[in-house]
Simulated scan of single mutants.
Amino acid sequence: MKEANAKRILFLATLDVTIYSFLIPHMKILKSMGYEVEVAASNVGFTDKIEKEGFKVYNLPFRRNPFSISNIKAFLKLYRIMKENNYLMLHTHTPVASFLGRIAGRLVGIPHIVYTAHGFHFHEYGNPLKNFIYYRLEKFAGKFTDVLITINVDDYKVATEKKLIPHGKVVYIKGVGVDLERLNPRNFKDNKESDFLSDNNRFIFVSVGRLEKEKHFDYLIKAFYFVKKHYPNFELLVIGDGEEQVSLKKLSQRISLKDYV
């Protein structure tokens, strides 16, 4: 086994959009400290942008579906990349890449394996069978993890109570939530309303996220249908992009909410 490069770090995610949207600032900090930072992820349209920021990207055929055969191909390619480059540290994100990446990282012998959990896929409201599977997968991959970073208190409690990382440590770093005090209207001297909000009789709900099935914006729109029946001056503003955009628009039209969503 080759000696690890003391200045080389790999950031790993299932899709490159995660890297570009959330992790560039962290990577730039490491780069400013003298580390050579590289990226491995599936290219869904953000690889060129990441490379323009100054980071080399390895394209892996990862898929979000954990049962996709492409994930096996991605694992084998990732293993070869890790073996050739002798990374000092692997920092994984998102479920599929994190599970396979931590196994590959330990097989290759990467000295430091860090996993940031952006939300466990097992929880009290989940399907019992899926909860069982996802919990066991996290428990298994935890054996190959030196540090688990959680970004909300609930995940931190679960990880520590269930000892998901038996040979490493769990840390909590604030990453989710809204600081209500920062957004308190009393803190702004010039609190003028935009034209969009100039009508005091309108109440607008805002929801932001990826327009994909797992986010269930259809539930939100269906629920808003009942709200609208009782409060005609309420409107819903959905901000995001994704494969469900067209179907969500059709749903709004079908239940007569086209002008209010």
Score class of each variant (00 low, 15 high):
residue 113 I to T: 07
residue 90 L to N: 03
residue 93 H to D: 05
residue 91 H to W: 03
residue 111 P to L: 10
residue 90 L to F: 05
residue 79 Y to K: 13
residue 102 R to E: 06
residue 88 L to G: 01
residue 97 A to H: 02
residue 48 D to V: 13
residue 103 I to A: 02
residue 91 H to S: 09
residue 118 H to D: 07
residue 89 M to W: 04
residue 115 Y to K: 04
residue 45 G to W: 09
residue 79 Y to L: 15
residue 109 G to K: 10
residue 109 G to P: 10
residue 101 G to P: 04
residue 63 R to D: 15
residue 58 Y to H: 14
residue 90 L to D: 02
residue 47 T to V: 15
residue 111 P to Y: 10
residue 92 T to H: 10
residue 112 H to N: 12
residue 104 A to G: 03
residue 96 V to H: 00
residue 91 H to N: 13
residue 89 M to H: 00
residue 84 E to Q: 14
residue 46 F to M: 12
residue 53 E to L: 05
residue 70 S to V: 00
residue 52 K to G: 08
residue 77 K to L: 12
residue 110 I to S: 02
residue 116 T to F: 00
residue 46 F to W: 11
residue 45 G to P: 11
residue 54 G to P: 11
residue 63 R to Y: 04
residue 106 R to L: 05
residue 117 A to G: 11
residue 116 T to D: 02
residue 116 T to W: 01
residue 86 N to L: 08
residue 119 G to K: 04
residue 42 S to V: 07
residue 66 P to E: 07
residue 112 H to P: 00
residue 55 F to P: 07
residue 58 Y to R: 09
residue 87 Y to E: 05
residue 43 N to H: 09
residue 104 A to C: 10
residue 82 M to S: 03
residue 94 T to I: 10
residue 75 F to K: 07
residue 105 G to C: 11
residue 90 L to C: 03
residue 115 Y to R: 09
residue 44 V to F: 01
residue 99 F to I: 15
residue 68 S to A: 15
residue 92 T to I: 10
residue 85 N to I: 03
residue 113 I to L: 08
residue 85 N to F: 02
residue 82 M to T: 04
residue 68 S to H: 10
residue 55 F to R: 06
residue 67 F to E: 12
residue 92 T to P: 02
residue 67 F to L: 15
residue 84 E to A: 13
residue 54 G to M: 09
residue 113 I to N: 04
residue 78 L to I: 01
residue 105 G to E: 11
residue 74 A to F: 03
residue 54 G to Y: 08
residue 87 Y to P: 01
residue 89 M to D: 01
residue 73 K to L: 12
residue 87 Y to A: 04
residue 109 G to Y: 09
residue 56 K to E: 12
residue 50 I to T: 06
residue 47 T to D: 03
residue 90 L to M: 11
residue 84 E to T: 11
residue 83 K to D: 13
residue 56 K to Q: 14
residue 70 S to F: 14
residue 44 V to A: 06
residue 99 F to W: 14
residue 88 L to S: 11
residue 92 T to W: 06
residue 66 P to L: 05
residue 106 R to A: 12
residue 115 Y to W: 11
residue 61 P to E: 11
